[in-house]
């Protein structure tokens, strides 16, 4: 008898929590725009750490892992493994694409004695819009200035880039099951557009 009472109570105790996922209201989506800015700040910090040659290799590799952890996980399409990538468009017309991990590794191994990266104060995040996958999508845009110098501090290469990052706010399954809709921010592909080479280079 007790066994049936246990089963009955366990089966029906959660029924009140079963309902459709609610639409995210505009106020909540605006909060996620701010959260995205925080995540972009984190990414900017990790990029600075990756490029900082005064740090140890271990610290910089850790920064690569932290940067990669901000991005969407790899996924399978048509039996092929896909990963977020960085598309770089240069003013001379060349366009190249590399996976984000490779992009960060390349940044770690740039052949400059000193690298200086400067950012614009805050990323501009577009409004979130719901996609056909049920997730919400936006774009975060910021400017980055890159300077590569020799041992004496002479500028060897410099450019100013505009970066557009695809942002996905995914429904966190554990909360959705509990009827408490909430989202988690992940980055996707990045478009890097070389806006101006620093004069002389």
């Amino acid at each position: 008898m007790m066994k049936y009472i246990y089963i009955f109570l366990l089966l029906f105790s959660g029924i009140g929590r079963l309902h459709a996922q609610p639409e995210m209201d505009q106020k909540r989506l605006a909060e996620f725009q701010k959260l995205t800015q925080q995540r972009v700040n984190d990414l900017q910090l990790y990029i600075s750490l990756i490029a900082d040659k005064s740090l140890s290799i271990e610290q910089r590799e850790q920064a690569v892992e932290l940067a990669v952890s901000l991005f969407e996980k790899d996924y399978m399409v048509n039996g092929k493994r896909r990963t977020p990538y960085v598309q770089v468009s240069r003013r001379n017309g060349t366009i190249s694409s590399v996976p984000v991990r490779i992009y960060f590794k390349n940044l770690m191994n740039v052949k400059f004695d000193k690298v200086e990266i400067t950012y614009y104060d805050a990323a501009v995040v577009s409004e979130f819009e719901k996609g056909t996958d049920g997730n919400y999508h936006a774009t975060a845009t910021y400017y980055q200035q890159f300077k590569g110098m020799d041992k004496k501090g002479n500028l060897i290469y410099g450019s100013r880039d505009r970066k557009d990052i695809r942002v996905t706010a995914q429904s966190a399954a554990v909360y959705a099951q509990a009827g408490k809709e909430d989202l988690k921010i992940f980055f996707g592909d990045i478009t890097v557009r070389d806006t101006v080479p620093i004069p002389g280079f």
Partner: peptide, 27 residues
Amino acid sequence: VPLSELHAQVAAPRADTIKINVRKGLS
């Protein structure tokens, strides 16, 4: 049973957010 799913909001700042001043100056 319903209380078992009470967690902190995902939107809260991440624990791995390191407070180091990144050089910002372009404006």
